[in-house]
């Protein structure tokens, strides 16, 4: 396991979370360091998405602590997490399909005129600027999100996360619905965010993408922390082997039962 003398910007200590009889997280530990891209990898059902939902306050842990920027939260709310600069792009994207691009970009932080009325014009203009700056092409930003392609929707969710100005950005499978060209643009965007000093936590099944962008890799399996190391000290083949070995161990355990 790699060690770091710096203080982590995000840390989870002995976190547990169960959904009925299913133990999604069992003594999960996780650290992310400022300005780094930390990739969380693991097989399906390893607890990656549960981990980030606890980090964003969407789920309450049954036990354990969440530390963000040196503050300890035993029960974090979405608002508290956002106030600490944590922003996430969830796997389900969390978009309101009936609203247009601006309605989604500014959901929860609407621009107002006269203090009470929504400033639709200004929100639309700012959305246009944002999408242009991020080189995201959506031909008609006034159409409801439900009429957009999977890639456009994913790009919109990423644009929203970037626009919040948070310094800890979490991306859960951010390019799963994107084509090669769009994925390459998003990878460039991640590089830019990293250069700007943002901390990025990335969940991805694409190991080559993980090695391409991350500084540190955290392996989780069956709701538990397995290992964490610097990306440069490993290779996709080694990582793949580690995940498969863990999966085989689990199969053996199940067979023994």
């Amino acid at each position: 396991m790699g060690t770091d003398t710096r203080e982590p910007i995000v840390e989870m200590r002995h976190v547990k979370k169960a959904f009925g009889y299913i133990q999604a997280l069992e003594d999960m530990n996780f650290s992310a360091y400022p300005g780094e891209v930390t990739a969380i990898v693991g097989d399906n059902g390893s607890g990656k998405s549960t981990l980030i939902k606890i980090l964003t306050g969407c789920l309450k842990p049954d036990a354990g602590e969440v530390w963000i920027k040196g503050k300890c939260f035993s029960s974090l709310t979405v608002k508290q997490s956002m106030n600490e600069g944590v922003t996430a792009v969830y796997q389900d994207l969390a978009l309101d399909n009936c609203k247009d691009c601006a309605g989604n970009i500014f959901l929860g932080r609407e621009l107002l005129k006269f203090g009470i009325f929504l400033d639709h014009g200004r929100m639309r203009r700012k959305t246009e600027e944002l999408l242009e700056n991020l080189h995201i092409s959506i031909p008609d930003i006034t159409q409801p999100v439900e009429r957009m392609s999977g890639g456009q929707r994913q790009a919109l969710a990423i644009a929203r996360a970037v626009d919040t100005g948070g310094d800890i950005l979490i991306f859960d499978e951010p390019t799963s619905a994107m084509g090669i060209k769009e994925t390459s643009r998003i990878m460039k965007l991640f590089a830019g965010l990293k250069e700007a000093g943002k901390t990025i936590i990335l969940i991805s099944h694409n190991l080559f993408q993980v090695f391409d962008i991350s500084d540190r890799i955290c392996v989780v399996h069956n709701g538990r922390f397995v290992d964490s190391f610097m990306t440069k000290d490993s290779s996709p083949q080694e990582l793949h082997k580690l995940i498969v070995e863990k999966e085989e161990e689990l199969s053996d355990e199940k067979a023994a039962w």
Partner: peptide, 28 residues
């Protein structure tokens, strides 16, 4: 009309029907 389409309250009521999860994950 203004309450539904030009104020935050109406926008959130619409989002409650559009995607409640989006609302919750936005801290509302």
């Amino acid at each position: 009309v203004p309450l539904m389409f030009h104020m935050k309250w109406g926008g959130y009521v619409l989002s409650l029907g559009g995607n409640r999860e989006a609302l919750v994950k936005s801290g509302i």
